[in-house]
Design a protein around this nucleic acid. Structure first.
Length: 309
RNA sequence: GGCGCCAUGGCCAAGUGGUAAGGCAAAGGUCUGCAACACCUCUAUCACCAGUUCGAAUCUGGUUGGCGCCU
């Protein structure tokens, strides 16, 4: 089986820097698994890698979409698959780097998503939820897909809508689809690394990184995105750092409040990411403190794991 | 020195005699097309001591700490 390397971890842990060193060592190229860095002009708030930092290591899925475009797991998976083939054709090793566990999962287990247009159905269902309430929608789901209804909490409107729209589009319950997909075997020889650090240190890094973003001009970045016609309804503008600054620019809070919200939301995000990685199978956890924060030692460990079969 | 006010979980904060609301933070979790999303779970005996009472965070006295005003 073809080798596929995954380097992930909570936001701000230091994936980017390490990924370049790894790519250089093993002759790899990088596929970003990041739902915000795909967008052009979202640079500061997404902590996007710069051209200089790339050190000539080729990156895929960075700066490829306009901020007006949608992005989701289906699009991600299509693009990532294509990138993997390209990299392999060159005889190089694909390295997926990014913090979106869901996206990574779709590639390593080859979960299939079909092309579909759900926008109209989705809007209708959102209407219904707003007018008739969560409980009503949940009951609707119960009628068509009892398994999903039991699994999804009545307040989780987004997931309920997806389950119903899947049923309407495909004429069968999404729970059935999920079950089929969940038993799929891995298609790559995947080496999955989760880079991590002590929680307080991570939170400190997050706070400092947010302050840095402000210094670098995050407010101006958001301002110019808004000037070009973007607002909070766009996919791209819902990322942490963007949505909070938009609130500030709309006069809904002070800049200090916005900054604190960014920090808080980023900490919450990091925590959720870790929850995800904990339940992922066959993961190599790399706790930075166990390597004295020495990248060379971390890299030799990773290479040892990668070369072992 | 005198007078007055206050003291509830990490923070904010209800409750003023019947056995501790809520929010935030922290922590844990769910996730198969918006995933940097959405959602779920969860944390106290009420500053301390003594008393009144069947029963006190709630009343009384004292102690400690804080705030304000006065001389």
């Amino acid at each position: 089986m073809d080798k596929l390397i995954v380097l992930t971890g909570p936001t701000a842990v230091g994936k980017t820097e390490l990924s370049i060193k790894l790519a250089n060592k093993i002759n790899g190229e990088i596929i970003s698994a990041d739902s915000i860095q795909v967008y052009k002009n979202l640079d500061i708030g997404s902590a996007k890698i710069t051209i200089e930092e790339m050190q000539n290591v080729k990156h895929y899925l960075v700066d490829v979409l306009n901020p007006t475009e949608d992005f989701n797991i289906y699009i991600f998976k299509e693009m990532a698959k294509k990138a993997i083939k390209e990299i392999q054709a060159k005889g190089k090793i694909p390295i997926i780097v990014g913090g979106t566990g869901f996206y990574i999962q779709s590639v390593i287990y080859d979960i299939s998503f079909s092309k579909e247009d759900n926008s109209i159905i989705r809007e209708e269902l959102e209407q219904i939820a707003r007018i008739k309430g969560n409980e009503f929608l949940h009951n609707e789901l119960k009628k068509i897909d009892k398994v999903s209804a039991e699994k999804i909490h009545p307040n989780n409107v987004k997931r309920i809508i997806r389950a119903i729209e899947y049923y309407k589009l495909n004429n069968r319950p999404i729970s059935q689809h999920n079950e089929e997909e969940s038993i799929k075997e891995a298609v790559f020889n995947t080496k999955y690394f989760v880079l991590n650090d002590k929680r307080e240190l991570l939170y400190d890094r997050i706070d400092r990184r947010v302050d840095k973003m402000i210094e670098l001009g995050l407010v101006d970045e958001v301002k110019s995105l808004m000037d070009s016609g973007l607002d909070s309804t766009y996919n791209s503008m819902q990322g942490i750092g963007y949505k909070e600054i938009i609130e500030y620019l709309d006069g809904k809070c002070t800049l200090d409040e916005a900054i604190n919200n960014i920090k808080k939301n980023t900490r919450h995000f990091a925590k959720r990411q870790l929850t995800w990685f904990r339940r992922e199978q066959n993961v190599n956890w790399i706790e930075k403190y166990q390597y004295d924060y020495d990248d060379e030692r971390i890299l030799s460990k990773m290479i040892e794991v990668i070369e072992n079969d």
